[in-house]
Design a protein around this nucleic acid. Structure first.
Length: 326
DNA sequence: CACCAGTA
DNA sequence: TACTGGTGG
């Protein structure tokens, strides 16, 4: 979820061509969850292997990664580590929402309302640690870099973008802006809408505020670390409070742990232990994992694995060539 | 999510 | 050739 900046900040439609030749850090959990909820059959059930284990996320990782490479975009997948203590309330709420969705799905099944069943099945779905581990394993086999963040994945991805190791952070959430990501790309891991780019400097310039102000607006509205924010305050009120210079007073009075929340955005736990370089894929390993262990179609996987190998081999070759002429 | 066959 | 809806696991 994250902060609800939605319609209040400037963004522009882009195409995959605008990302050509660039590396991007993908908010892994965010993307995996999208795959899990969207890669489904008509009845709302996810893809499964013969053992009944959900494989939608593997499908998404595999095909989306190849599709991005095909467009000369290099994804670096960034996964969450240990959540900040202050996130506990949000996590409990989310668990509760899932349980409620589970109940509603059962009711819809009794009523044989198939649309409702599908809707609540999506809402009740969650990523298991095993699914996430297997996604990392698959990325490893594919030769695609991934990063285990010490804490929030978006904080780590934003750090990598700030350093210039990647051009942008890919996420549906706006929180990366609060971590100082210079660019955030939305709708890259979905197909319903066109990709859009949010430029942090443009946001701050258009609103005539600082990043600290933006963080204050977010905390007033509510973040994962103070869900709900200050009662009755949405973007417009928060913006007015910041512009009139009284935001700090309200925050200090109304938001428990204000300074600590601010610190999560300003000084997040991050690591320099990562690589953003592609490696040649392990073709046999991918086929063993997807086909033998997860019942993907051999012909289909084989075709894509060969394509993946060619793409990465060419990219590596090009890089060596570039270095030669530099 | 992307693929692919069937369609116009 | 471009589109779209059913399928994959």
């Amino acid at each position: 979820m994250g902060v609800q900046f939605g319609d209040f900040i400037p963004k522009r439609q882009i195409s995959l061509d605008d990302l050509k030749g660039k590396k991007v850090a993908i908010d892994g959990m965010n993307a995996l969850y999208q795959f899990l909820t969207s890669i489904r059959l008509k009845d709302g059930s996810p893809l499964k292997n013969k053992k009944g284990e959900i494989t939608s996320a593997y499908n998404g990782i595999f095909y989306k990664t190849i599709h991005l490479l095909e467009n000369d975009i290099t994804p670096i997948w960034v996964f969450d580590g240990e959540p900040p203590k202050l996130k506990e309330k949000t996590r409990k709420m989310r668990r509760h929402m899932k349980e409620q969705a589970e109940e509603k799905m059962k009711e819809a099944m009794k009523k044989e309302n198939l649309d409702e069943v599908a809707k609540f099945a999506k809402r009740a779905s969650y990523l298991t640690p095993k699914i996430v581990d297997n996604c990392k394993y698959l990325l490893g086999l594919m030769g695609i870099p991934y990063v285990n963040a010490p804490s929030e994945g978006e904080a780590q991805a934003s750090y990598m973008a700030k350093k210039g190791d990647v051009w942008a952070v890919v996420s549906q959430d706006y929180d990366s802006l609060l971590y100082g990501a210079p660019r955030v790309v939305r709708n890259l891991t979905t197909t319903k809408e066109m990709p859009e780019l949010i430029n942090l400097d443009d946001v701050l310039e258009e609103l005539r505020i600082s990043l600290d102000d933006l963080i204050d607006i977010a905390i007033l509205m509510g973040t994962d670390y103070n869900p709900g924010g200050v009662k009755g305050i949405g973007f417009k009120r928060a913006y007015e409070l910041v512009k009139s210079g009284v935001a700090k007073d309200v925050l200090k009075k109304e938001v428990e742990n204000y300074e600590e929340i601010r610190k999560i955005f300003k000084e997040p736990k991050i690591t320099d232990e990562y690589s953003v370089n592609l490696r040649l894929p392990n073709k046999e390993g991918i086929i063993k994992f997807l086909v033998d262990e997860n019942d993907f179609n051999y012909e289909r996987v084989k075709k894509h694995v060969d394509r993946l190998y060619t793409l990465i081999a060419n990219k590596t070759k090009q890089k060596t060539l570039d270095a030669w002429f530099k």
